[in-house]
Computed example of a mutant assay.
Amino acid sequence: MRSVGVEEELLLVDARTGRPRNLASEVIRAAGARDARSPAPSDDRGGSLGHELHRTQVETDTPPVESLPALDHALRAWRERTRTAALEVGARVLASGTSPLAGDSAVERSSRYDAMRQRYGLMIAEQLVCGCHVHVDVSGPDEGVAVLDRIRTWVPLLLAVSANSPWAQSVDTAFESYRHPMQMRWPSAGPTPVLGSPDAYRRYVEAMLATGVPLDEAMVYTDARLSAQHPTVEIRTADVCLDVRDAVLVAALARALVETAAREAEEGRGPDDVPAPLLRLAGWKAGRHGMTGELVHPPTGTSRPAADVMETLLDHVGDALRDAGDHDHVAQGIARLLEEGTGARRQRELLGAADPDDDEALGRAVVALCRITAGEQPSPAS
């Protein structure tokens, strides 16, 4: 069984107005003090809470686990730790790919972030986005690159499943994931070409760095990449999910894609060498429509209804899901999203019901989203 871990970027918003608050340092200190007073139970240890690009964000990461229930537990535990620390300083935690409401968001001060600000200018100030990054265990660089080459056509579907950023800066963007086009503003973002070997992967990364555009290797923001710290493939395309259940679903699908790709490579089946510009179009379509319209069907490259494409995805990774004992869980999760909608639908239900000229009503809607982030399920009218 391949282990899987998840990093979640979370927003800090005012507990009353729902607007971004620059309180990352205060929340991290409060969480550390709370942990010092009451250490977590042994089965809740592992993972971390840290800074992100903006002071209105924090990032959690889970320890690597093998079962979906263990991952669900770890994600909820870290959201709860962050929530309780945020409440101590007058904030709430929101899992959203973008900030639904406008507000002042300052960039963290560090030598690296200062260098990024100097290089990228206004883009850094505007780049308030939150993703869900899934790490899946691989045996080494050879298997890792073989996996990257074979999952690239399927990765946009994880964005569709996770879509959770329809509102940004007090505007309904018409996208299910507006985070995606914002993320694609990074010059190093997007799909990789088929590379074939660890040496070719290394040459590709070094060629990007040689341009002087990415600040360092950590800024190679491709849809999926080899982790520099761990023997994992890191899949970075998903929005942070409003509902923990959706984050677990994304992780289960990511693991199944990795396992399926590794088996294909072992069997000598080559990757589909789809040009990267076409994969960018598939990603754009997933961000625009999520699960509400049509997606690009990976085997054919044509536009098909989301339900049909998800059925193809389940067929593609079916053996890996069954071997992991995850098939029923994933099939039920996809059926739930097709019927009930992703986080983007919940955001539109709550924010769309509020008077756009009533700041207090919009704030209440965002606070309701914070309660869903914490594991509660308020009705659209709350």
Rank of each mutant, 00 (worst) to 15 (best):
L321A: 03
L71R: 13
A31T: 05
G18T: 10
R322C: 14
W78T: 09
A224L: 10
T300A: 05
A286C: 08
D172L: 10
R29V: 14
G121Y: 01
P231L: 03
G131C: 00
D359K: 09
A163F: 03
D44R: 10
L53M: 14
A344C: 10
S170F: 06
P380L: 04
P187V: 01
R263E: 13
L11D: 06
E59R: 08
Y221T: 05
E26L: 14
E376D: 15
H289F: 15
L351N: 01
H316E: 15
R263K: 02
V367E: 13
L350Y: 07
A95D: 01
T98A: 11
T237M: 11
P356T: 06
E108F: 11
E8P: 01
R345C: 07
W186D: 05
E206V: 11
M116C: 13
S48T: 13
G343N: 08
A354E: 00
P378I: 07
G5R: 00
V205G: 12
D142Q: 13
M182R: 09
G46R: 13
S227R: 01
A146I: 00
G103A: 11
I372D: 00
G333C: 11
L209H: 12
G268F: 01
H54E: 12
P271A: 13
M310I: 02
A95F: 02
T62P: 11
P214V: 13
I28V: 15
W154S: 08
G18W: 07
A40I: 04
C370M: 03
P39F: 00
P299A: 14
S111T: 14
M1K: 14
H135V: 01
D359V: 06
V233F: 08
R263C: 09
S162W: 01
L75K: 03
G318I: 00
L314C: 03
E349F: 00
Q183C: 04
A77W: 11
A320F: 05
A74W: 05
H316I: 06
E234G: 03
R34L: 04
D239A: 06
L253G: 04
A238D: 04
A306W: 03
A125R: 08
G341E: 03
L350S: 05
A307G: 09
E7T: 02
A31L: 07
G318F: 00
M182G: 00
A247D: 09
R348H: 10
V171E: 15
L87D: 13
G190R: 07
V155N: 08
R185L: 13
